[in-house]
């Protein structure tokens, strides 16, 4: 019984939080951006940048806190490129996002090779505090992510800023008419999404205290799926992220279970499970997902 609790309750719970937290942070980032009318498929790239710069800055300053700041700034720099391209120059948002994913992957791995060399980052680095009881210790970013959910809900639904943000995403022309600066709102939202995605990436690399190529592994896109699945609302989005995090945690744990058939023991097929579950969730149970009305469309001021 003790073993069952350790492995399947505490262990799986811990794994769900470990895989779910970066999804929550990134999905909240996507929520800000899409609520303002800008699709941000570049979350994946911003997470990659965050993952690298968290480690790099932490090594340089010997402070995980500055590492987190560095990760957020890196995400925001890429977000600024996305904002300039899509808000100011009306570029197609998916195309710009794709460009940023390509640039982030190339640039980060370029920097990783030139700054750290082929051996990678040094083994001992300053890493965020762990909090919680002895057998359930988690990074301080985990409670922070849940606070961010509450904060996002409050900002989006209970502040004048949130109201303006939503109006810009639903009907920019009307928002413009009543004096809201559409471009400014969208820039702010996209920059916030970059900071949150950078933080999400930092969580992933701090979890193993090093950066490796492709370590974000599609989590930015899973976060986007969670955003759709949670219908652009903070709490349902968080639940979707925890579900997808649970799927990844489960996949990481099933390998050792003796009575399962061989195919279920294959680490490769188990690793495919989170993506399959994301697909099933998107295709099967999402129902009618209605995004913010103006999402994906550039706003051209007359």
């Amino acid at each position: 019984m003790k073993e069952f609790v350790d492995v399947w309750i505490l262990g799986l719970g811990l794994a769900t939080l470990t895989y779910g937290t970066p999804l929550i942070l990134a999905a909240l980032g996507g929520l800000f951006s899409e609520r303002s009318g800008i699709v941000n498929i570049a979350l994946e790239g911003m997470m990659t940048a965050g993952a690298f710069f968290a480690i790099y800055v932490s090594v340089q300053t010997n402070s995980w806190f500055f590492g987190l700041i560095g990760a957020m700034l890196a995400g925001m720099v890429l977000a600024a490129v996305h904002a300039v391209a899509t808000v100011t120059f009306h570029a197609d948002q998916i195309v710009s996002g794709t460009a940023i994913i390509l640039i982030a992957a190339g640039l980060v791995n370029f920097l990783n090779l030139t700054l750290f060399g082929s051996e990678g980052s040094p083994p001992d680095i300053s890493s965020p505090w762990k909090v919680g009881p002895a057998d359930f210790r988690v990074s301080v970013l985990v409670p922070l992510a849940f606070l961010a959910v509450a904060g996002t809900w409050f900002v989006i639904f209970r502040t004048p800023f949130g109201l303006r943000l939503r109006s810009v995403g639903e009907h920019p022309r009307a928002a413009d008419t009543v004096g809201i600066d559409v471009a400014r709102m969208r820039y702010t939202a996209v920059l916030v999404s970059g900071a949150l995605a950078g933080l999400a990436g930092a969580f992933i690399s701090f979890n193993v205290d090093s950066y490796t190529e492709n370590m974000v592994a599609g989590n930015g896109f899973i976060a986007l799926a969670a955003l759709i699945f949670g219908k652009w609302k903070p709490v349902p989005v968080m639940m979707a992220c925890l579900l997808f995090g649970f799927a990844q945690g489960l996949a990481s744990r099933l390998g050792g279970v003796g009575w399962l058939p061989d195919a279920f023991q294959s680490p490769e097929l188990l690793n495919a499970l989170p993506y399959v579950i994301t697909l099933i969730a998107l295709a099967g149970f999402v129902g009618k997902a209605v995004p913010p009305a103006a999402v994906g469309k550039p706003y051209i001021k007359h």
Partner: peptide, 25 residues
């Protein structure tokens, strides 16, 4: 340095996509 060239090409591809996408510039 070894391995850097292919990463550089990745960046160049990305920048091409960005500029073609934001062709208004």
């Amino acid at each position: 340095p070894s391995g850097v060239a292919t990463k550089l090409i990745g960046v160049i591809q990305g920048v091409i996509v960005l500029f073609v996408g934001a062709d208004v510039i």
